[in-house]
Amino acid sequence: MNIKQDRYQTLDSDPSPRLPVCFLIDCSFSMQVVQGGTRTGERVARDGNIYDVVKGGSSPRITEVIRGFEGFINDILNDTRAKSSVEIAIVTFSNKVAIERDFGPVDTGLKSLQFNAMGDGTRLGLAVKTGLQMLDRRKEDYSEYSISYYQPQLIILTDGEATDKEVCSEQARHVQQRMQKGKLISLPFLIGDEKEAGALRDFSPDQELLRIDGVNLVALFRFLSQSAIQQSRSTAGGNESVNLKKMIAALRQNIVPAGSI
């Protein structure tokens, strides 16, 4: 599913400031879970869990992610400044971590991306490590081409507890350090109603956990695109940590239910 593209494409011809946004998307089997539906009586054992097979119900979480992501891309393409600024990278993770798309400009081809949520395990730590490495490498590209950039965004979407806890703890320290220095905006979202957030909380500002219902994912992506558009228009004098707090507050008010976990 990798979309091959030249990572230097447009850097030479378009010196607009860039906003790198790295999506880390959980593609473990649990992302196939739906809300509601009628049990068929059939059961499936995957990834240490047993799932009831149902007919009907809401769309699977991963389908909502794809729908939401398509809306995100449309929003960015419809904004002149964001279109030339926002650069997207996508990393999927389950028992393995895959770079689906390295950093590059937003184009219509991104709308046809599909994610297969069939994997076992949730290697969140390795995914974060990969995302941070990609962000660092992209910042080096920007420097090489004398392109200025905005505070990078790391967006994590998962519905389960990490299975690589040691790597997670180590990466959480890196993420927190970067956030404290104002060098990264990290927004982890727990999809669904899992009781335990586990290590995910450590990737969020002030260890706040943002929980999102599977059916609200499209709204979440709409919020994320608006945040990216706003950030790509932001100019000097703004205090990024305040912006991040505002962003979280707006999320809590509009999409993520208050007091979750």
């Binding site: 932001s234 703004g238 990024e240």
Partner: peptide, 14 residues
């Protein structure tokens, strides 16, 4: 003269 990020610089009113 700007900071690490594109939206960090200084104005006459800073």
């Amino acid at each position: 003269d700007n900071g690490e990020f594109a939206n960090q610089t200084w104005f006459v009113t800073s």
